[in-house]
């Protein structure tokens, strides 16, 4: 199971709008994403990167073609199954979308409580630990309104990773981060791949990240125009969890 591709798309199309305004944004995408690897999606603005990412991450209804996510066909899947699948994924969006009235810790805990009540003490400890890893130990009880853009983005990353997702989808996660913390985040994601076989699919324009990617897929006008698998040097791994 671990070696099966966690994401397989075949003949995937996507249309926006209806009638006259109907416009195709994704054209016949056929991909197999390898487990435990960092796959980067790149391409010019409007090329369909976000659309493809949200289709693969079951945030958008798959209507034409097929996406198999963790062995489950998304085309025609009932809402209940989608909700269950989403709990196994982690999302990092372009906009951080933190809840304004929850503190950093509470926002991160939302990523844990989706799995049920659980033990609040353990949840709190896990949230604090991961906030420490993204360098926010001293800001963990701040409301988002009192954090900088980069700090908010790091909270969002912690929220996506806290529940040990099988796949992480990230849409330009480093856009709001400085060079060093951007690199740290990507290293963390890579480390998760090695230690826990976590698969990462990331949209990015950032050249510094490209060299760390295991595979780079280039989109243009909704089609895959280039697909390069590249060997990467082993990273000096950061310690992830106490467990």
């Amino acid at each position: 199971m671990t070696d099966a591709a966690p994401i397989i798309t075949s003949g995937l199309d996507h249309f926006f709008g209806t009638g006259e305004a109907r416009k195709q944004a994704i054209w016949d995408v056929n991909l197999e994403i390898a487990p435990g690897k960092l796959t980067v999606l790149m391409g010019p603005s409007g090329s369909g990167k976000t659309t493809l990412l949200t289709l693969m991450g079951c945030l958008r209804d798959v209507k034409d073609g097929s996406v198999r996510l963790l062995g489950i066909e998304l085309n025609g899947a009932p809402e209940k199954q989608l909700v269950a699948l989403r709990r196994k994924l982690g999302f990092i969006f372009q906009a951080h979308n933190l809840h304004e009235s929850l503190t950093a810790t509470q926002n991160v805990m939302m990523g844990l409580q989706v799995h049920g009540r659980g033990d609040p003490v353990k949840q709190l400890a896990a949230a604090h630990h991961i906030l420490g890893l993204v360098g926010l130990a001293d800001r963990r009880d701040y409301l988002p309104g009192n954090l900088s853009g980069g700090q908010k983005q790091r909270v969002a990353i912690a929220r996506a990773l806290v529940s040990n997702p099988k796949i992480v989808f990230a849409d330009e996660p480093t856009a709001a981060l400085d060079k060093v913390s951007g690199r740290n985040v990507v290293e963390m994601l890579k480390a998760l791949g090695v230690q826990r076989n976590t698969t990462t699919v990331m949209v990015t324009h950032d050249n510094r990240i490209l060299e760390m990617a295991d595979r780079i897929i280039t989109l243009e006008e909704g089609r895959v125009v280039k697909d390069v698998v590249q060997p990467t040097k082993p990273l000096q791994l950061v310690e992830l969890t106490k467990s």
Binding site: G57, L59, E79, K80, V83, A84, L85, R86, R87, K88, L89, F91, F93, A95, N97, L98, H99, E100, M110, G111, V114, R159
Partner: peptide, 15 residues
């Protein structure tokens, strides 16, 4: 007013 936060929760798997 909280639509984008709710969307995020929905994306995280809240029903």
């Amino acid at each position: 007013d909280h639509l984008s936060e709710y969307a995020t929760f929905k994306a995280m798997g809240y029903g």
